Amino acid sequence: LQLFIKTLTGKTFTVEMEPSDTIENLKAKIQDKEGIPPDQQRLIFAGKQLEDGRTLSDYNIQKESTLHLVL
């Protein structure tokens, strides 16, 4: 599923993930694309901070959802 990642600077980029992927996987993918170390990434969806060990489906993140990346 394609997700939109929006940064505080207003930049938006996309990543391609599976619902079974963990937040950790997502942070690694963001590191590949943007060079931001996972330990500096905080991801927010629907007002909640996402925890590394959980999956996208745990948070009911669907295709074309927008996640906010806070550094």
Rank of each mutant, 00 (worst) to 15 (best):
S20K: 08
G53Y: 12
S57H: 11
K11R: 11
K6M: 12
K29A: 12
K63R: 12
T14W: 09
K29P: 00
G47C: 04
E16T: 15
K33H: 15
K6F: 07
T9N: 15
E18Q: 14
L1D: 05
K6R: 11
P38N: 09
A46F: 08
A28D: 09
G35E: 04
Y59F: 04
K63N: 15
K29C: 04
P38Q: 15
Q40H: 13
S57K: 14
K63A: 11
A46K: 13
L3I: 14
T9L: 10
L8D: 14
N60T: 05
F45Q: 03
Q40D: 10
L67S: 02
D58H: 11
A28H: 15
I30Q: 00
A46L: 12
A46P: 01
V15F: 07
Q2G: 06
E34P: 01
K63C: 04
S65D: 11
A28K: 12
M17D: 01
P19A: 13
L26K: 00
K6W: 08
L3V: 11
A28S: 11
D39A: 14
G53I: 07
K63W: 09
I36Y: 14
F4A: 06
I61Y: 02
E34D: 04
T55A: 08
E34N: 12
E51D: 12
D32V: 11
K33F: 09
P37E: 07
T9P: 06
M17G: 07
G53V: 08
T66K: 06
K63P: 14
Q2R: 12
Q31T: 12
K48T: 13
L69D: 00
L8I: 13
T66P: 03
G53W: 13
I44G: 03
L69S: 01
P19V: 07
I61F: 06
L56M: 06
I30M: 02
T9V: 09
V70P: 01
Q40K: 12
V70Y: 14
S57R: 14
T66D: 04
L50P: 01
F45N: 03
L1F: 10
E16M: 14
Q40E: 11
E51T: 07
T55Y: 08
P37G: 06
G10T: 03
L67H: 02
L56W: 02
T7D: 08
F4R: 14
T9H: 14
I23V: 13
Q62H: 14
E16C: 04
F13D: 01
T12K: 09
I5D: 00
F13A: 02
L50A: 02
Q49H: 10
L8C: 05
R42F: 12
P37V: 06
P19W: 08
D39M: 12
F45G: 02
P19I: 10
D58C: 02
E51C: 04
L3H: 01
D39E: 15
Q40N: 10
T12Y: 08
T14F: 08
E34T: 12
E64I: 06
H68F: 07
L8V: 12
G47E: 06
V70C: 04
D52P: 08
L69G: 00
E24C: 05
S20N: 14
N25Y: 14
I44R: 06
Q41A: 04
K33N: 06
D39G: 12
S57A: 12
D52T: 07
L8Y: 12
R54M: 14
T9R: 08
D52F: 04
N25K: 11
G53K: 11
L8E: 14
T12E: 08
G53T: 11
G35L: 05
L3K: 00
T12G: 08
R54L: 09
G47L: 03
D39Q: 13
K48C: 04
L1Y: 11
Q62N: 14
L26S: 00
A28F: 10
L56A: 04
N60P: 04
L69F: 03
Q2T: 15
D52W: 03
L56R: 00
L43G: 00
I30A: 01
E18K: 10
L3N: 01
L43A: 01
F4D: 04
G35K: 10
L43C: 01
T22Q: 05
T22Y: 15
L67A: 02
H68Y: 09
Q31A: 13
T66N: 05
E16N: 13
F45D: 01
T22V: 06
P37F: 06
T7P: 07
S20P: 04
L3A: 02
E24V: 07
V70L: 12
L67N: 02
V15A: 03
I23C: 02
I5S: 00
A46Q: 12
S65K: 04
N25S: 13
L43P: 01
H68G: 05
I36R: 03
K6T: 15
P19H: 10
T7I: 13
F13H: 03
Q49I: 15
T22P: 06
F4L: 11
E34Q: 10
G10R: 07
Q31K: 11
K6Q: 13
E51R: 06
T22K: 08
L67F: 04
P38H: 13
T55W: 04
E16G: 07
Q49Y: 13
K33R: 11
T9Y: 13
M17W: 09
E18R: 11
G53H: 14
E34M: 15
V15R: 00
E18W: 13
L50I: 05
Y59R: 01
R54Y: 14
P19Q: 12
T14S: 11
E64N: 15
I23P: 02
L1E: 04
G35A: 06
D32F: 12
F4Y: 15
S65I: 05
V15G: 00
E16L: 15
K11I: 10
Q40F: 09
T55F: 08
F4W: 10
D21P: 01
V70A: 08
Q40L: 11
G10S: 04
D21G: 10
E16P: 06
T22F: 11
L56P: 03
Q41C: 04
Y59I: 03
T12M: 09
F45L: 06
D58Y: 12
K63M: 13
L50W: 02
T22M: 07
D52V: 07
E34V: 15
Q62A: 10
R54T: 07
L3Y: 04
Q41S: 04
F13M: 06
L71S: 09
T9C: 05
R54I: 06
L26A: 02
L69M: 06
K27N: 01
R54P: 04
K6C: 05
Q41P: 01
L8M: 12
Q31L: 10
E51F: 10
K27A: 01
K6V: 13
G53A: 10
F45W: 11
L43N: 00
F4I: 11
P37L: 09
G10K: 06
T7N: 06
L56H: 01
T66R: 05
E16H: 13
I36W: 10
R54H: 15
T14V: 10
Q40R: 13
S57Q: 14
L50F: 02
G47Q: 05
G10P: 02
L8A: 11
L50N: 00
R42N: 09
K11C: 05
Q49V: 15
L67C: 01
L56N: 00
I5C: 01
P19G: 09
L71W: 09
E51L: 10
P38F: 14
E64K: 08
G53D: 08
T55G: 03
T7R: 12
V70G: 05
I5N: 00
E16W: 14
S20W: 13
T12C: 05
S65R: 04
K33G: 05
G47R: 04
G35D: 06
I30P: 00
T12W: 09
Y59K: 01
T66S: 06
I23T: 05
I23G: 01
K63V: 08
L56F: 08
